[in-house]
Design a protein around this nucleic acid. Structure first.
Lengths: 181, 181
DNA sequence: GTCAACTGCAACATCAATGTTGCAGTAGAG
DNA sequence: CTCTACTGCAACATTGATGTTGCAGTTGAC
């Protein structure tokens, strides 16, 4: 039974993330139905709607944290770390399409975790600036925002592009732009 | 009284757009309170919640359409049209921060209008490709997505950057990228 | 086989949001 | 001034989502 329970829990989280991304006001009933379980089962596992959302966010944060760790943002050469980060984070964005920025306001703990991860990436961008990989006239915060925007775009609007190619596209657009020379 | 009515209506739409952007499930009561009018007044003006949303979308679509017209996307030289479009659309995105893509599913008429506007911009991007302003290996759909992402990013995450400078930043990131040479 | 854990189902209470209506007050147009 | 249009306020009905509980059935662990 433990196995069934874990599988269903995971299914509810993934299904919930998908539906909530399309429509943040999706009802628990709709999520339960889409996950193929009864509404009461979901309520037994998650005390309230908030708890379900927290679990979804936590799952996304766990995945993202693993990607940040494995990308070795502080040790690896900038181009290598960037590509490794992109190739890892794009599947995470696709699996957990929920927008953590606006949906986590009521969850200070998750918000703090998100901030910490955000800071790691910002530090990496700053290193890219310092080491001369970005143009000197570029604001680090703007570079950071551009990178995030490109990731979200390729992840959600081009789900068919596989992660390696998606990472190439993002890195290319980020560094070289799309114009001629 | 007609003047008061029009002013309040406009105020409700703008306030509603702002609150709905932060939280799409914002209640009519919250919108009315934020706009400084009674809940029933909003209901007298908009039959449904749907009607209110439609009005917000329509306002955004009207503004966007004006920008598309004035940018002269089919006649003006690509760089000129691009800059004019950006400088016009960024304030629109800021004034109506609602995400039209996901919130208009239930409104086929607005959806069609949005599609038409989207097509105009895609045509423009295609022209930029054809006239050699974009690299030959760049997919037009990807270029289009990148441009949208950059606009949203500068509009919502950097509200303090004024439209001309914001347009410069976006055009620069779009065409040249942020990397060195 | 027995037990424990889990599930679906039905029924229930609660609550917040929606939408309606009547009434009194107010302000601009004529 | 008077009429019209609008507003706020209070009260009400309705609905959909939330969360709870009891009961019976199922399944895996032991």
């Amino acid at each position: 039974m433990r196995a069934d329970a874990a599988r269903n829990l995971s299914s509810v989280l993934r299904t919930g993330a998908r539906l909530l991304a399309e429509d943040p006001s999706t009802s628990m009933a709709a999520i339960a139905a889409a996950a193929g379980v009864d509404r009461t089962t979901v309520h037994r596992r998650f005390a309230n709607r908030e708890a379900l959302l927290r679990a979804v966010f936590q799952a996304k944060l766990d995945s993202a944290e693993r990607v940040l760790d494995e990308a070795r943002l502080t040790e690896a050469p900038v181009p290598v770390a960037l590509h490794r980060y992109l190739e890892g984070i794009i599947p995470v964005a696709r699996e957990w399409p929920v927008d953590t920025r606006r949906m986590m306001r009521k969850d200070p703990e998750a918000s703090a975790r998100r901030e910490a991860q955000s800071a790691r990436l910002s530090t990496f961008i700053q290193r890219a600036c310092d080491e001369g990989y970005l143009r000197a006239d570029i604001d680090a915060a703007w570079a950071r925002a551009v990178l995030d925007a490109l990731v979200d775009s390729i992840a959600h609007q081009f789900p068919a592009v596989d992660p390696p190619q998606a990472a190439d596209l993002v890195a290319d657009a980020f560094l070289r732009g799309l114009g001629v020379t």
